[in-house]
Amino acid sequence: MTVTADDGVRLWAERSGGAGDPLVLCHGGPGLWDMFGDLAALLADVTPVVRWDQRGCGRSERCDGPWTSARFVADLDAVRRHFGLERMALLGHSWGAQLGLSYALAHPDRVSALVYVSGTGIGPDADWRPGYKENFLARLADHPERLARWRELSGVAERTRDAERERAVLHWSVEFEDRDRALEPAGRMAEPWFGVNSECAGALDAERERTWGTPALHAACRDLGVPVLIVDGAHDIRPRSAVDSLAASLPHVRRVTLPRAGHMPWVDDPEGFRELLSRWAGDGRESPA
C-alpha cells in the first residue's frame, strides 16, 4: 500500500489485523525500515496495527529528504490521514519513540496514547551515548570472534552489500539477551535487506544533538495531555537513566521495566510484552500516572 506525503514522496505502509482503530507503529533508526513483523504477529489478537517505512528508507520511495524531524512528523500525519484516523494510538521504538513523542508534542489532539519503547529520553546525547558505546563493545566482546569480525568490516571504507549486511547483523546482535542465539533475531532484522540510509541517519542524529535536552522541550513535555506508557528493557545497553527526565516531565505517564528484556523487549520477552500491551489495550489505551 502506498501513502503519498504532502510533498509527493511515496511511503510504504501496511495495515493488518481485524476491525477497530489500529496501533500505528514507528520503527527505529533513523535510516532503517519497519522490522515489526514479529511484533505484528504477536499482537494479532490484541490490536490491528499499521506499519510503515519512513521516507527514503526500506520499501518507501528513495528521495533526497529533507531529513528533519518536522518532515518525518508530517509524513506520520500523512499515514494517519491515509487510514482515516481522527486520532491514533502510537507505538514508537528507539528513534521511533522520539518520532512518536515529537508527533504527540506537535499534534496532541491527534494522538489518543503513546507507547514509548526503548527510547533515550529528552536530555542531551551525553546522558546515554557514552554508556551505550561502552556497553556495546563490552557485550560484543562476549563473543570475541564477532567483535573481531565487526572491527574488520568497520575498517573497510567501501563495503559490499553483503559486507554491509553482515556488519549490521553483528552490530544488532548486542541488542538481544540470549547472547548465544542473538545472530538469529539480528539476521531476521536484516531480511529482506534494504540498506541503511546513512545520510538520513546522520542528519537526524545531528539534529537531535542540536535540539534535544532544551528547557523548552522539558516544558512542552510537562504540558502534554496525552497518556504515555514508557516500556524499558532492564538490559538495554542504552542507560535507562536517560529516560528518567522524560518520565518525570510527563503529567500522564506509566513506566514499566521488563526485567528479562533488552532493546527489543517483544523479542526477548514476547509473553511479557504481549501481556503488557494487552492490558493497556484492555484499559482503553490509557496509562495514568
Results as ranks from 00 to 15, higher is better:
residue 250 L to A: 02
residue 230 I to P: 10
residue 255 R to H: 13
residue 210 R to A: 06
residue 245 S to D: 11
residue 241 S to G: 09
residue 249 S to Y: 09
residue 258 L to E: 14
residue 251 P to N: 07
residue 241 S to F: 11
residue 206 A to Y: 06
residue 237 I to C: 11
residue 259 P to Q: 12
residue 211 T to H: 07
residue 214 T to F: 01
residue 252 H to D: 15
residue 241 S to H: 06
residue 247 A to Q: 12
residue 216 A to K: 07
residue 217 L to C: 05
residue 209 E to S: 14
residue 252 H to W: 12
residue 260 R to H: 12
residue 219 A to Y: 01
residue 232 D to V: 05
residue 208 R to D: 10
residue 261 A to M: 15
residue 228 V to E: 15
residue 243 V to F: 00
residue 221 C to E: 07
residue 227 P to R: 01
residue 215 P to V: 10
residue 231 V to E: 04
residue 209 E to H: 12
residue 219 A to D: 15
residue 203 A to K: 11
residue 242 A to I: 03
residue 233 G to Y: 01
residue 239 P to K: 04
residue 239 P to E: 14
residue 237 I to P: 08
residue 209 E to I: 10
residue 244 D to Y: 02
residue 216 A to M: 05
residue 253 V to E: 05
residue 207 E to P: 05
residue 251 P to Y: 04
residue 241 S to N: 11
residue 208 R to E: 01
residue 206 A to G: 08
residue 259 P to R: 14
residue 240 R to Q: 13
residue 260 R to I: 15
residue 256 V to F: 03
residue 230 I to N: 06
residue 233 G to C: 09
residue 247 A to N: 14
residue 251 P to R: 03
residue 207 E to L: 07
residue 231 V to C: 14
residue 203 A to V: 02
residue 233 G to K: 06
residue 209 E to W: 07
residue 234 A to H: 05
residue 214 T to H: 03
residue 225 G to E: 00
residue 237 I to V: 09
residue 213 G to K: 12
residue 255 R to N: 02
residue 222 R to T: 15
residue 228 V to T: 06
residue 216 A to P: 07
residue 231 V to R: 06
residue 244 D to E: 07
residue 257 T to K: 03
residue 234 A to E: 14
residue 248 A to V: 09
residue 233 G to F: 06
residue 245 S to V: 02
residue 216 A to F: 11
residue 234 A to M: 12
residue 242 A to K: 08
residue 244 D to V: 04
residue 257 T to H: 04
residue 251 P to V: 00
residue 237 I to L: 02
residue 207 E to T: 00
residue 205 D to A: 08
residue 230 I to C: 10
residue 205 D to H: 10
residue 250 L to K: 05
residue 218 H to Q: 15
residue 210 R to L: 12
residue 209 E to Y: 13
residue 250 L to G: 10
residue 203 A to E: 12
residue 235 H to I: 11
residue 206 A to S: 10
residue 245 S to G: 04
residue 242 A to T: 00
residue 254 R to D: 14
residue 214 T to K: 04
residue 224 L to A: 07
residue 261 A to L: 14
residue 256 V to W: 05
residue 233 G to M: 11
residue 221 C to P: 09
residue 249 S to H: 14
residue 209 E to F: 00
residue 218 H to V: 10
residue 251 P to T: 06
residue 211 T to M: 03
residue 262 G to C: 15
residue 244 D to F: 01
residue 240 R to P: 03
residue 254 R to W: 14
residue 250 L to Y: 08
residue 256 V to I: 07
residue 215 P to L: 07
residue 212 W to N: 04
residue 219 A to S: 12
residue 257 T to S: 11
